[in-house]
Design a protein around this nucleic acid. Structure first.
Lengths: 197, 197
DNA sequence: CAACAAAGTTGGCAACGCCTACATCCGGTA
DNA sequence: TACCGGATGTAGGCGTTGCCAACTTTGTTG
C-alpha cells in the first residue's frame, strides 16, 4: 500500500470519496462525474465501478457521510456550556452554519431521499437530528419546556432552521441578515412553546 | 397555426414547457432531457434549441412558472375569508400543500437559484412570497400583531413552512402527521410573536 | 415577388453512465 | 513454495445526452 504507480491504487474508495467531496462543495452534485473523478485521481474510467456500482451509490455514500458530519456538529453544539436556551441557540447557529457553509451538500442530503434508497439515508437523517431531539427532551425534564411531544417540537425547530438555511442559500435573504434572523426565530420559537401551557 | 403535421410545430415552446412540467412532476428535474422531450413531442432533437438556448434555460422557465403558480396559490389563500389567524393558517396549509404536491418543482425552485441566473428567479421568489408578507403587514396595521419588521417575520414564517415541507418530502415525517405539525408550528409561531411585545 | 428572419432538420462531436471481457495483484492454502 | 481464486484495475464498446454548425422550409414584409 501507499505504493504509487502500482496497478492497484490501494485506497481508491477513499480517494474517490475525498475528491468527490471537494467537487461537490465547489461545483454541486450535478458536476460529479465518475469518469472525471477517475481521471482526476489517475485511474481508468471504469475503476470506480468496483467501489460504487453506479453514480447514485457514490451520491448515497456522500450523503451518508454528510449526515454523519452534521450529527457530530449538532452533538457538539448541543453539549455547549450554558443554560438550556444557550444550547438551543448554539444548535441553531451550528445547523445554519453547516447548511450554508456546505450548501451543495445540504441540497444533496434533502434532495435525494425521495427515491429508492430510503432506508439507509433516512436512518442517517434521523440519527443526525437525534442530538437536537435529545436537547428538547432534556429541556422538558429540566422543566425549561412545557410537556408535549418532544419529537414534534424538535421537528418544528429543525424545519425552521432548515428553511432559513434554504432561503439563505437561495439568495433570498442577505447573509449579513442571517444571524439576527436566526436569533429572532429562536426567540419566537421558545416563547411560543412556553406560552402554550 | 394549429396545423398539425406541418414543418413548423406552431407552438413548440408551450408544448415543450407542458411536457417538461409533467416529466418534472413525475420523475424530477434530473430526468429532463431536451432530446427526449423533442422525441415525445415528435420533433427533431435540435428543435428545442430555437426556444431554449440550453437545458438550463428550460429549467429556468419551469422555475419561473412555478414561482408564478406558487404566488397565485398563496394570494388566493391570503384572501381567504375569516380572521387574521385563519388566513395565516390558510396560507400555511396552502404552502405546504403546494410544496408536497409538487415536490420536484419545489426542489427545482430552491435548488437552482444559487448559480448565475440570479436576477429573474430571485425576483420570482420575492414576488411569490409577497402576498405572505402582505398578510403580516395587514396583521400589524389591524393590531393583530405587534410592531416589528414584517419582512423578518414573514421570512421566519415561510422558512418554517419550507422546512416542514422539505422534511415531509424527504420522508422524515409521515404524511399523516403533517397537518398537526403545521397547526402546532403556526400556533407556536403566532404565540411567540405576540408575547414578544 | 424576392429577400430575409424565424423555426425545424440533419449530422457530428465530446462526454457520460453502464456493460463485458481481459489483465494484474494479493492472500490463503495445498 | 507454488498456485489458485477473488479482488481490483484496464480497455473497449454501446446508447444517450447537450451543444454546435450547415442546411431546408415557411411565412412575413418591403
Amino acid at each position: 500500500m501507499l505504493t504509487n504507480r502500482s496497478y492497484h491504487h490501494g485506497d481508491l474508495r477513499r480517494a474517490l470519496l475525498e475528491r468527490a467531496g471537494t467537487v461537490l462543495q465547489e461545483s454541486g452534485a450535478d458536476a460529479l462525474s465518475l469518469r472525471k473523478l477517475a481521471r482526476d485521481i489517475g485511474v481508468s474510467h471504469a475503476a470506480p465501478a468496483r467501489h460504487f456500482p453506479d453514480r447514485q451509490a457514490l451520491l448515497d455514500a456522500l450523503a451518508a457521510d454528510g449526515f454523519d458530519r452534521l450529527r457530530a456538529r449538532l452533538e457538539e453544539a448541543a453539549a455547549a456550556p450554558g443554560q438550556f436556551d444557550q444550547q438551543v441557540r448554539c444548535v441553531a447557529g451550528a445547523y445554519v452554519d453547516f447548511a450554508t457553509t456546505e450548501a451543495n451538500l445540504l441540497e444533496l442530503l434533502f434532495a435525494h431521499n425521495k427515491g429508492g434508497s430510503a432506508g439507509v439515508l433516512d436512518q442517517g437523517a434521523v440519527d443526525a437530528f437525534a442530538p437536537t431531539l435529545e436537547i428538547f427532551r432534556r429541556g422538558q425534564t429540566e422543566g425549561r419546556l412545557p410537556a408535549g411531544d418532544p419529537v414534534r417540537l424538535g421537528l418544528i425547530f429543525i424545519a425552521t432552521l432548515q428553511g432559513i438555511a434554504v432561503l439563505a442559500n437561495s439568495g433570498i435573504t442577505r447573509s449579513d441578515q442571517l444571524r439576527p434572523l436566526i436569533d429572532e426565530a429562536v426567540t419566537h420559537f421558545l416563547r411560543g412553546v412556553r406560552s402554550s401551557a
